[in-house]
Nucleic acid binder design. Structure first.
Lengths: 156, 156
DNA sequence: CAAATGAGTTCCCTAAGGGAACCAACTGAA
DNA sequence: TTCAGTTGGTTCCCTTAGGGAACTCATTTG
């Protein structure tokens, strides 16, 4: 299907999508995040084709999001665990889940709940400004060009 | 390519992905978010095929993320604007951008900066707990089954 | 020894993405 | 009046990625 590569775009969103933009990737990540770390488990839970799962796991591993660990040497068996980079990516899942809860969960209510370790309460994430601690939503910011947007360093 | 539908899964992440999971959608959303609201502009900026762009715009509109507005009746011309639902989806973009900045921006630094209206500073988003205001990252929560996870209401 | 398990790989088929060309409705200039 | 230009698509064909089933390989358990 000759998909366009996003990795080279001067856009952090595009570069993030290059890693987990394919539709299955966030779900795979979610499963690993909740402790479903083995190929078979993930494949059956998601109903993803084995081929695509193998491809995605390889890609996520190559990109440092997951790590392939041997949990049995004989027979050789592996599982996938989150790296620090991958765990931070899971923050994205919390925000996705929040949006899905608000806008797509029907009568039944949210399919999963999140209990915050710090307070022990069922809660959800909120976006705050790292500088002033006030709410920081998409509607509350201006987008400006940053240093990484420059075409190329002029060194003739 | 007979893609699996995510919309019916009992998972808010999957349902969110059903709306914006396809790789181009977040980038289209980003462009609309920063004021690039017309078909031609978006198509040229992203380098997306016109066919796929038309499909995505229709899908996002059907799903209440974008609204198609006439900005000239003669000749009939339309642009796409964010709904409230769509604007909240853009929160996701801020989080994606943050991850991309941290993990994929190289020497050059982040390609775009975000200035927070409330404090006027260049900043970035942080995830906080809606209950206790403390940082709430993926590593800081337990995931529990919620009401929407139940198989079906038993009313025989 | 046979069956089961885990983690893939291989194969074929279908449908989605890319790209280019085309279309429709109007505008503005020559 | 005609003709190029603009905007917002649609249509067509081609390639390739995803789905699904079958197969493999190494090993353990019955």
């Amino acid at each position: 299907m000759q998909r366009t590569r996003f990795g080279d775009m001067a856009c952090s969103i595009a570069r993030t999508l290059d890693v987990v933009g394919e539709p299955w990737s966030p779900l795979i990540l979610r499963n690993v995040y909740v402790g479903m770390t083995r190929f078979e488990q993930i494949q059956q839970d998601l109903g993803i084709s084995r081929k695509v799962l193998a491809e995605r796991l390889r890609w996520l591993t190559e990109n440092g999001v997951l790590e392939r660990q041997e949990y049995s040497s004989r027979p050789p068996r592996h599982e996938y665990v989150l790296t620090a980079k991958g765990m931070e990516l899971c923050d994205l899942l919390l925000v996705m889940a929040r949006w899905g809860d608000r806008w797509t969960a029907g009568e039944a209510g949210p399919p999963v709940l999140h209990r915050h370790h710090a307070c022990g309460e069922i809660s959800h994430v909120e976006l705050r400004c790292a500088v002033c601690d006030q709410p920081m939503r998409a509607a509350d910011v201006d987008v400006l060009p940053g240093p990484g947007s420059l075409p190329a360093p002029s060194s003739p």
